[in-house]
Design a protein around this nucleic acid. Structure first.
Lengths: 350, 350
DNA sequence: GTGAAAGCGCTAACAA
DNA sequence: TTGTTAGCGCTTTCAC
């Protein structure tokens, strides 16, 4: 959809396309027969059927899906919507979201669905339903819950079949599939504690549901270890390319003592590490770092980044599976996928 | 499309959708009037029009695009196809391709087009045309030319409106948009030479058109500098996660002396650097490295990676613009976008 | 086993 | 200004 003001309107310059009627004429039968033959119906004579099929193939005729869908009131297209921040005008770039897109493409292809991708202004999230409202797609996967809980609830209340990648929240009408952020945070921090770290900083905007839950896991691990939670160690930064640097500098400026960082995303962790290095701080010797997501490049980073792996392949499949349930009219409970600690060098023992 | 064997077939459980006829009845007019009103036609009474529009809005009615398209023989959907290697079963993961997807999404959204993404087996590339053949989309952007020149030519010969991201090749019937690979390679190598490097290794599969041209640029720069081209310095490796490591190890095993690497992609460069490090070789002190693509993480890498920037935003726009030309029946000449050298630490002077 | 006819939800002559 | 009618390309009763 993305109903912008359509610029130049390239109405398909009615390129002569082969139609069923053409095949029918060439085969000397009616369109009904062609339709049946192509559908592999047993109602049509074996010989006629193969003849028609070969004819169609040799002419490279394919059924017009639009017309077929209209007649059959069917549709095998799923919408994937990625909200963008209208303020920062930030475009699709986070590696994790992009991988998710890839994973969804794979999962949908496997299931024989088409994927219609659109980007919508996060502030006008009901635009996300446009492809559904106009009948383009039969359901929507939304990547990026951000702060839009209420708008998402409204969509669900309108019975838009929608599944959201994100955190499970109280009073939630829509279905979410997400990683287990609390346990992810717990895993990361427990690991750091085991490595002998005591003063663990947390980087990330805890107002975002997912990040908030990771912070919860952070607190949980500290408490279990009998350590106090020092608010000074929590630095709120957005998921922006420059945020890691900002966070480190803020910590240094505030003169907060810390020997580890748990970052809300790998990108954050990486930029933080680079900034630490320019400040003469060694990772992991002086500061241990654990990220979140396990994007592909985490392995290749120097030092290789310890991180919490989000199960991306499983995520794509789960999102699709839940959405299909919803589309079929069945309830789809929200889901939490297990996360996994990937220990690499960036969090090695002192 | 992606005509796999459709598994469970969720024919939309004919969810009662509002139709134009409903609006017409409620407004006490005919569907024609509603149609005209919603289209903003001046033919319909001002008052009636606003009344109908408000009614539609309040009922959240939206025109069924499928039916509209059928009737109008129009379509504003573009297909984006990403071939995958059936051999390695490698799924969509290269950061550069993913960014391209993002860039295309943005460019298409800007132009008011929808984007239908599909993955096809690279060995059966004419499947790439399926969304077009079935009328789902009016044209196709294919990301990843690989070795499929001939199949792409066949598609073009069939008059499938298709634009390919890749290298311009002799006897090419299809339209390509790509970076200027020769000059990219030249830039990279000239830079390394200026930094005082003499024995520059090249990593990448030169059978791939784009990589081949980068190698051409490599040779060009060396020759201009009056240096001989040593085939021993060219290591053929695929774009796989592990390739950088393989390439470095092969070079070391073959006992080839080298003081710099020009890698065919950033990913290759990064894995190479990591391997060099494990072998006790310092970058850039002993070995300078330049990559290709300038993916986002290049900046964050350690050392920050010198690389050739591919103009991704411009690429998305150019691909879309060319495709629209083609769709309109106008010729679309192949295009080479300028590339740019990004000098960072990985290629610093000795 | 096959064809004629109706209709999916919409738009555009053509009438009125 | 509005309604009536036909038809986009397909599938599917219902007859034959």
């Amino acid at each position: 959809m993305s109903a912008n003001t359509p610029p130049e309107v390239p109405n398909t310059p009615s390129q002569q396309r082969l139609q069923m009627a053409d095949i029918a004429r060439l085969a000397g039968v009616s369109t009904s027969t062609v339709s049946r033959a192509l559908a592999g119906s047993k109602l049509v004579n074996e010989e006629t059927r193969t003849r028609i099929m070969e004819l169609a193939r040799s002419l490279k005729y394919t059924i017009n899906i639009g017309a077929q869908n209209l007649r059959l009131k069917q549709n095998r297209t799923i919408g994937v919507v990625i909200p963008y921040d209208s303020a920062t005008r930030q475009h699709l770039s986070d590696p994790f979201f992009l991988s998710m897109l890839g994973s969804l493409a794979d999962a949908l292809t496997e299931q024989g669905f088409d994927m219609l991708v659109s980007r919508v202004d996060a502030e006008e999230l009901d635009a996300a339903a446009a492809p559904f409202d106009t009948g383009r797609v039969i359901g929507i996967v939304l990547i990026g819950q951000w702060r839009h809980h209420d708008q998402l609830n409204q969509l669900a209340a309108r019975h838009v079949p929608i599944v959201v990648w994100g955190a499970q929240l109280p009073q939630q009408l829509y279905c979410t599939v997400g990683g287990d952020n609390v346990s992810g945070g717990d895993l990361a921090v427990s690991h750091l504690l085991q490595q002998g770290r005591q003063r663990i900083a947390f980087f990330g905007d805890i107002n975002l549901p997912e990040v908030g839950q990771r912070y919860e896991g952070y607190c949980q691990a500290l408490q279990r270890a009998g350590l106090a939670i020092d608010p000074a160690l929590q630095v709120s930064v957005a998921f922006l390319p420059d945020s890691g640097r900002q966070a480190v500098q803020e910590l240094l400026r505030r003169n907060v003592r810390f020997d580890a960082i748990f970052a809300g995303s790998d990108l954050l962790a990486m930029t933080a590490i680079n900034t630490l290095r320019t400040q003469g701080l060694e990772v992991p010797r002086q500061i241990a770092v654990v990220g979140y997501d396990d994007i592909e490049l985490s392995t290749y980073f120097h030092p290789p980044l310890s991180t919490i792996r989000q199960p991306i392949r499983a995520a794509g499949r789960a999102l699709v599976a839940s959405l299909l349930e919803l589309i079929e009219g069945r309830p789809a409970p929200s889901l939490q996928l297990p996360t996994q600690l990937m220990v690499r060098e960036s969090s090695a023992s002192v």
